[in-house]
Nucleic acid binder design. Structure first.
Lengths: 217, 217
DNA sequence: CACCTAAGCTAGGTCGGACATAATTTTATG
DNA sequence: CATAAAATTATGTCCGACCTAGCTTAGGTG
């Protein structure tokens, strides 16, 4: 591939800049480090950093797209007949068992850095919100109609992720071990999805049309 | 009352500044208007604006505290024996019937202004998040223990508000009349709370202890 | 092998928000 | 009415994000 080299260099530069930035952020705090300092430490110009990462927050939440799409993907990839709740719950169980840090088990330094920065907590909220929207879009696309009730369902399911993420972060900051937190989160997820089962268990791919048909105002 | 006059003047000045600012923001857009311009239009100094409203966003979301506490208040003020869900649902029905704009029926200009500003949408998310947290705190305080499951319940209930607010805003921007939107939101709320009833209907002030006792890791 | 096209990069400058300080006006009280 | 306290204003500075326009370098081409 001819254009491979160029693209490779870009990815390496991107990774290098992000890595240097994260080290500085975790050491001194996100708001206390300027883009100029990141550029300096990475050996590039200020504009180059801005070029790779349009907003300063992007240096931290680099691959946010994957997180945003994860819920919708889990919903879309489920087997026919499997309910939405079952698919999301199974996906969560699998990923927490695999130690997926994006579910709420970051490093303590990362959690501290985010918690101490209003900008970063805001971006975290935005990502959670976008993930919920994406799930809602997936549900609506699947049903072929758009109904507020679908957004409600998406919010319920996404809220489990969001709340458990916060719980995990809290425990990371409290110094608990990653293994223990994973076990706690897995248990809490079981209880949470059990709680929702009576309400959302029937929300699969069929028998939804009857509920949605008369609700488009 | 001796100190009354002074306090009155402050409130009037606050209201005047906020009003002038809102007019400018809705006309030109939040990000396009500077604090200096607001101060100029209000006939006060820049520092006075900053003094009343520490952050620029506070000029828009002035009485955010009331919104943040509304959910927790509705929960705390419920009659003994009334379930959490029933109390929240009744509160919503009452306020939407009264045309409470904070539930998702702002003016089109306001909705446009917020939607066009990343700062303001972020602040909106933060307010919703804080309201959810406050509700969770109220639930935990009532039970005397802190359990992730309580945060899950709080998130479910708060999500109804959040999703319906978004739905209302969408319809406002689409040009629907306020009356019609209120009717639609009231109906959507009924369906949403009906959906949650099987899962959360039993979440009142008693029979919670059995579920929470073995979950503190 | 020299050229050419387009991209990524750089430098400098602009703008707005936050903050410090001191002077001035307004208000409450003896 | 005088005095003390408090709020407001004026001025000025700093700092960081972002934009515009010019420059360099890499990759493909006759």
């Amino acid at each position: 591939m001819a254009t491979g080299l160029r693209e490779r260099r870009k990815q390496e530069a991107r990774q290098a800049i992000s890595g240097v930035a994260m080290a500085l952020f975790e050491l001194r705090g996100f708001d206390e480090v300027t883009i100029a300092q990141v550029a300096d430490a990475a050996g590039v110009s200020k504009m180059t950093v801005t070029n790779y990462f349009p907003r300063k927050e992007d240096l931290v939440f680099d691959r946010a797209e994957a997180i945003i799409r994860s819920l919708a993907d889990a919903a879309a990839a489920r087997a026919p007949g499997e309910s939405l709740l079952t698919a999301i719950r199974r996906d969560y169980a699998e990923r927490i068992a695999a130690g997926d840090v994006t579910l709420g088990v970051p490093t303590a330094a990362f959690a501290r850095m985010v918690g101490n920065s209003h900008v970063l907590t805001g971006r975290g909220r935005e990502i959670a919100d976008l993930a919920e929207q994406a799930l809602g879009d997936a549900i609506a696309a699947e049903a072929g109609v758009d109904d507020p009730q679908q957004r409600i369902v998406a919010a319920q399911l996404a809220s489990v992720h969001r709340v458990l993420f916060a719980e995990g972060t809290r425990r990371v900051l409290a110094g608990q071990s990653r293994d223990e937190i994973c076990r706690v989160l897995a248990a809490a997820a079981r209880r949470a999805f059990d709680l929702l089962e009576p309400s959302l268990g029937g929300y699969g791919w069929s028998d939804v049309s009857a509920e949605t048909s008369d609700a488009i105002a």
